[in-house]
């Protein structure tokens, strides 16, 4: 018996370690991930959508869609509430890159801003439904609540001058100053 114990321990540890490695590895790359931390998009798609959103809400003296992480919002929602739009994005994003290639010979994200704007205008005319979808989602991601993945550091709310959070107490029932 005494001499059996260490070997038992060793074997258990070995198997546990293997299991741990397997479990860890499984968790690290699980969840339908696409390798670069996106939930729905491929890395290329994310780059394209990020660039589209930045054209829709460009940086000026205030942050734009890229800095506000709008593409995160869209990616997160596509994996959850916007599942029904997944196909539209898959097709639409490819379409945007196709238009860019046809017109300017490069992927959308690699174009300079003015060419991006031209390409997007063309996309808007050609496939208006997809463009409007991205437009709405970009606005939600930029102007909506950061808890959904966009509007990083409340960039848009600061831009609009909303006190965050507002300073607001309330009257107390027993407050002699009330009424």
């Amino acid at each position: 018996m005494p001499n059996q114990k260490p070997s038992l321990k060793r074997r258990t540890f070995l198997s546990a370690g293997l299991a741990a490695a397997a479990g860890g590895a499984a968790i690290s790359c699980g969840g339908g991930g696409t390798g670069e931390g996106w939930r729905f998009f491929t890395a290329e798609e994310a780059r394209t959508v990020d660039a589209i959103c930045e054209r829709i809400i460009p940086a000026d003296r205030d942050p734009g869609a890229h800095a506000a992480g709008v593409v995160n919002y869209i990616d997160i929602q596509l994996a959850k509430r916007f599942k029904k739009h997944q196909a539209a994005y898959r097709k639409g994003v490819a379409g945007v890159d196709a238009v860019s290639r046809a017109r300017f010979g490069k992927r959308f994200a690699e174009l300079p801003p003015d060419q991006q704007t031209q390409a997007l205008t063309e996309v808007g005319a050609k496939s208006g439904a997809f463009f409007n979808l991205v437009l709405n989602h970009a606005m939600q991601g930029f102007y909506g609540d950061p808890r959904h993945g966009g509007n990083r550091n409340m960039a848009s709310w600061r831009m609009l001058g909303l006190p965050l959070p507002p300073v607001r107490g309330r009257q107390h029932y027993d407050d002699p100053k009330a009424g």
Binding site: T12, F13, S15, A16, G17, A19, A20, A21, G23, G24, I27, S28, C29, G31, G33, G37, W38, R39
Partner: peptide, 27 residues
């Protein structure tokens, strides 16, 4: 049983041994 039970803290150990980097592998 021991393997299954130990797998949990062992997995935890795997993640923490990376100094946080492995935790961040989950997006």
């Amino acid at each position: 049983a021991a393997a299954v039970i130990l797998m949990v803290p062992a997995t935890t150990f795997y993640f923490e041994s990376g100094g946080g980097r492995r935790c961040a592998s989950c997006h």
